[in-house]
Design a protein around this nucleic acid. Sequence first.
DNA 1: GCATTACCCTGAAAGC
DNA 2: TGCTTTCAGGGTAATG
Length: 273
Amino acid sequence: MPEMPEVETIARKLRKTIVGKRVSEVQLSGLPLRRPIPGSFAAVLPGRTIRRIHRRGKYLIAELEPRAYWLIHLGMSGRILYFPGAGERTAHTHAAIRFTDATELHYRDHRRFGLLAVYEAAGLGEIPELQALGRDPLGAGFNGQWLWRELRRSRQQVKSFLLDQGRIAGLGNIYVLEALFHAHLRPTRRCHRISRGEAVDLARAIAKVLRQAIRNRGTSFSDFMDSDGVLGDYQNHLSVFQREGKRCRRCRSEIRRLIQGNRSSFFCPGCQK
DNA sequence: GCATTACCCTGAAAGC
DNA sequence: TGCTTTCAGGGTAATG
């Protein structure tokens, strides 16, 4: 399940592999993703050159020349695969982008929760999906003071708050739960009851967990691999996620699981208050 | 404003 | 062994 570190890992690979290439042809499966792939997608890309690769939250954006933006969200099972020649089309290859040098980039997604779109906008700021995003947790505006001010205004449980992409862009289930563990906070804590000091610790924990995950090229369970098919390593560093019944590495308590909003949460009852 | 539920989807695991 | 059921989850929308 790609979250920000996995998307950042892919973005770094793509900057090395496809920037400067010109699209010659686009083939689509015809099946809808989260939304149908717009008809303009296959019309806009051919003839354009990839100028830059951006990441905003969990979105990948390829900036094209003449100016257009190709937006990608991987959903839960989306994969971007780069091939030095013609790549294998599977039942789940929903878009195959061929470049003029005969290399290819494929979008595969067996659950089809992802998103592909194209905008002929003047700037990134005009793309509606990106306008809806909150602050980037590794960006300059993200710190403990800002987080505390935001938390104080909410009565939500802190896990739901952190998953809200409109507040903080890029966190998903894994890294929210890992960050809460490192900040000694239970996922059920009410935001407005979190102290300034705890908010500062939480902001630091979020940034630390994300940076470590990026260094390890993300977390691979069943779905994630980067555009060259390389698996991430961060699953070997997890403290609570999917460790129900196992011992906490810090206090030896048994990791517990609970359901919040139909999603699993994992926490250490000894370390997290 | 917030929680809950449902929906989209399919592969893996569990259950029978 | 083979079939059926359950579960997983990101984002979004509807409902209470």
